[in-house]
Amino acid sequence: MKAILMRQPGGPEVLAETELPVPEPQSPNDVLVRLHAAGINPVDTKIRAKGPMLPETLTAVLGCDGAGTVEALGDAVTRFKPGDAVWYCHGGLGGPHGNYAEYAVVDESVAQPKPKSLTFVEAAAAPLVLITAWEALHDRARIEPEQTVLIHGGAGGVGHVAIQLARLAGARVATTVSGPEKAEFVHGLGAEYAIDYQQEDLAGAIADWTGGRGVDVCFDTVGPEVFARSIDVMAVYGDLVTILDPGTVGLKEARNRNLRISLELMLTPQLKHMPEALTHQGEILRRCGELCDAGELRIAVADTYPLAAAGDAHRRLEAGGMQGKLVLSLPAADG
């Protein structure tokens, strides 16, 4: 099979198309998937640059997100049959190879039936960001109806689904964007207030929006500087969640406000070998699939690249300013 192999850390040029053996189910619960598309996420570019997160090998096939059709089954698989369309987030961290390839093997508990309303490309774009946003809002922040929620980077991969999930939970949503085009995009997703961080003062905008109270929940998808600034726009007893390392941040004001601060890394169940947590993430994906098929949740794909152009896709992602997701589309991708 064709696959994109990283033999050493470095720039996008280290991603090389090569021929690898088609993997086979190794355990009774394994499913062999013929991939139609593979999602591209910032974690892929970080692993490419710094090396695998699971240091079992220096070589790696990247890509956590995949969508395709079932080709073969382990003896104990009961949830799928050959020809079923599936989507999932698994692999790509080192050790088990990821989804920048024509085939991949995953445990049946991780895979879920692909939503009928999504193409394979859309489905491959979604699992990591959906699970991340769901865990951040529901598992970490414990979002409730009528709360005010600030989502940083609302036009990005995680941000654009987080807006929708927060709205579906009954919350009022504000989000930060750059420029009027992205503001229009996030309003279409259900954001009540779009703050152009290049033109507007965040603290003043949130004070106006909340009547000086601050937001109940803030979800940071950007990084340390934004995380630090977010403390001053939080309501007392609020929840501040970040998906990135917050760095060295003074927390005196966070303590004064009695904030609950949470870190979200949806890759933890893979990194720590936690099968029950992986099953929970599979359930999250199943519920999100139902929302997609009900027309209540949509996935924005900015662009697609052929498998051989994975390096170009990484360059595009690292350039920043993305609206939605990038996806590697394999020849079988037909919706």
Rank of each mutant, 00 (worst) to 15 (best):
L5Y: 13
Q8S: 09
G11F: 08
P12S: 10
L15M: 01
P21T: 00
N29T: 13
V31G: 00
L35M: 01
L35Y: 00
G39K: 06
I47N: 04
K50F: 07
K50N: 11
P52F: 06
M53H: 04
P55Q: 11
E56R: 15
T57D: 08
A60L: 05
V61S: 02
G68L: 00
T69A: 13
V77F: 06
T78L: 04
Y88I: 02
Y88T: 00
L93T: 00
G94S: 08
G94C: 07
P96A: 03
G98I: 12
A104L: 14
V105Y: 08
V105G: 05
A111Y: 06
Q112E: 12
Q112T: 14
K116V: 05
F120T: 02
E122I: 08
T132M: 03
L137C: 10
H138N: 06
D139L: 15
R140N: 09
R140G: 02
A141P: 12
E146N: 03
Q147P: 11
H152P: 11
G154H: 04
V158R: 08
G159P: 04
V161W: 11
Q164K: 08
A166D: 07
L168H: 14
T175V: 15
V177A: 01
F185W: 15
V186P: 10
H187S: 13
E192R: 09
E192Q: 10
Y193H: 05
A205M: 04
A207G: 02
T210K: 10
T210D: 01
G211I: 07
R213G: 01
T221E: 05
G223C: 01
G223Q: 02
Y237C: 05
T242H: 11
T242D: 07
T242F: 09
T242R: 11
G247V: 11
G247T: 12
V249P: 06
L251N: 04
K252V: 03
L259C: 06
Q270C: 06
Q270F: 11
A277Y: 12
L285M: 14
C288V: 06
G295K: 04
A302K: 12
D303M: 04
T304P: 07
T304N: 10
A308N: 11
V327G: 05
A332G: 14
